[in-house]
Computed example of a mutant assay.
Amino acid sequence: MSAGRESTHVSSLGKGDSLHQHVLASFPLCDLTEEDLTQNPQFCKLLATLTQHVDQTGLTVPLKTELDKAEQKLQSQRRQWLRSESLHKGLQEMIQDHCIRKHHATTPPDQNMFFETMEKSLLVSQCIRQLDLSSTTNQDQPSILGLTPHHVMELMPLEKNVQRMKQGLPRELEKHLKKKCLSLLSYYQPEWEGESEGLKSSKLFHLSAQLDKEKKRAESLKETCRENSVLLQRQTQLYLSELIKCIQLLQSLILDHRLRIQTDLDRKKLDYFEGKCELVLQKIKTEMVEIQLDTYTVDSISAHKKIREKLDSELKACQAEKQSVELKLASFEILGKDFEALAEEYCRLRQEIEMKNWALKEFTQYNDK
């Protein structure tokens, strides 16, 4: 039954973008995007169900109630402390102002007595609070310098002076606080500083409401700023994800384009290098012709060409003869080692015949002489 109620609640929140927007608005502190919720629909439904049990900060409803009560109690105690602290600070400021006035001008004796009595009373009260051990857990804690509150009470001014001070204190405190409020009013609205005392007092009654209005406006702007910050962060994440997709698409397009034009680029480079090599070869030939023209005459070059042609023809003839001899030698080598012995014997006989022919020729020439 609970599952049916939760599904009914989730379906009542909306579908698609409306559900996603509701979840994102309910959990602004979570680092979630609409794409995350789209890719995880069950998780999105879980968050949508949790919205009826927790607030935007992640606290449950009972815990939030207890926290609000504790916050109210804390605020009440804080106001009480601030009230007493403000009163104490105000009295100290009054004493300081009196000391300053006393050094710059002559003050009436009764006024001096009033502030001296107030200063001594404040000091005695402060010392009594420091010496009061009733609020401590350790009752055996030794007193400071062996003093007790009773010892300090002996330093209080005379009772009649204290009573006279208490009677005049509200009036003096009111004057001091009014002076501070007027200073605050002049700081808040400098253009009102030249107004009359009555008009300032009238506007002073509305100062609290104006300050409260300004405070609410500042809190509203702060909340708007926080929402804008969350929205900006979410939009930044979306922008970065889209930017990454665009970069990946651009990289794929660049790669495809590069592969497509690589063949044409290589062919053009090959044609360029072939043309450059042909140009270098032509330049080398031109340099060789120039060197020949600078070194030899036209007749010498013609004679050298004829000699070269004759030598080339003789070289070709010798190469052809060498090739035929190598073929014959290869055919003779097929006959084996027996033919090698016969060939050596034939060479020996040829050498002997040549020697005898030479000797015969020499002998014949000698006889003719």
Rank of each mutant, 00 (worst) to 15 (best):
C30K: 15
R226T: 03
L240H: 10
E274R: 15
F273W: 15
Q77K: 08
M113G: 01
S26T: 06
D110R: 00
D36N: 12
D264S: 14
Q126V: 03
E191N: 11
Y188G: 01
Y346D: 09
L145K: 05
W192A: 07
S125G: 05
S300G: 03
K120D: 00
Q52A: 06
D256E: 08
V230I: 02
E172F: 02
L63M: 12
F205V: 12
K322A: 11
E119D: 10
I244K: 14
L74F: 14
P28I: 04
Q351S: 15
S302F: 09
I144Y: 05
F339K: 07
L238V: 07
Q39W: 03
Y187I: 02
L29K: 11
E352C: 04
D132H: 04
K120C: 00
S18F: 01
Q21C: 00
F43S: 10
S7I: 13
K175G: 01
L243A: 13
C246H: 10
L311Y: 06
E66K: 12
Q235D: 05
K64C: 08
Q248S: 08
G198I: 13
S300W: 07
C318P: 01
E119L: 12
R129M: 15
L47M: 15
Q80S: 08
L82Q: 01
G4A: 15
A105W: 02
S121K: 00
C44P: 09
I301M: 14
K166R: 13
L19S: 02
A320T: 12
E159F: 02
T148I: 00
E309H: 04
T224F: 09
Q42C: 05
R348T: 13
A105P: 00
T297H: 02
E354G: 05
T106R: 10
E6Y: 11
L37W: 02
L211G: 07
L177Y: 10
Q262Y: 13
K276T: 12
I254S: 10
I301A: 07
V325M: 13
K369C: 07
V61P: 00
K283N: 06
D338S: 11
V280Y: 09
E66H: 13
D132Q: 04
R348K: 14
I144E: 00
V23T: 06
V152G: 05
K337D: 09
G90M: 15
Q233V: 01
V325A: 09
K328F: 12
S201Y: 07
K269H: 15
H103L: 15
S229H: 00
L238S: 10
I144F: 08
T8N: 10
H98F: 14
D299E: 09
E191W: 08
H304I: 10
H98N: 05
L204I: 07
H98Y: 11
K285S: 07
K337R: 06
R101P: 03
S331Y: 04
D36S: 09
W358K: 13
T65V: 14
H176Y: 12
K15Y: 03
L133Y: 00
P62T: 07
C30S: 14
H257T: 09
R258D: 11
L335N: 05
C347L: 15
R226H: 04
E223L: 13
D68C: 13
R164Q: 11
K306T: 09
E71D: 11
D68F: 12
K222N: 08
T148V: 01
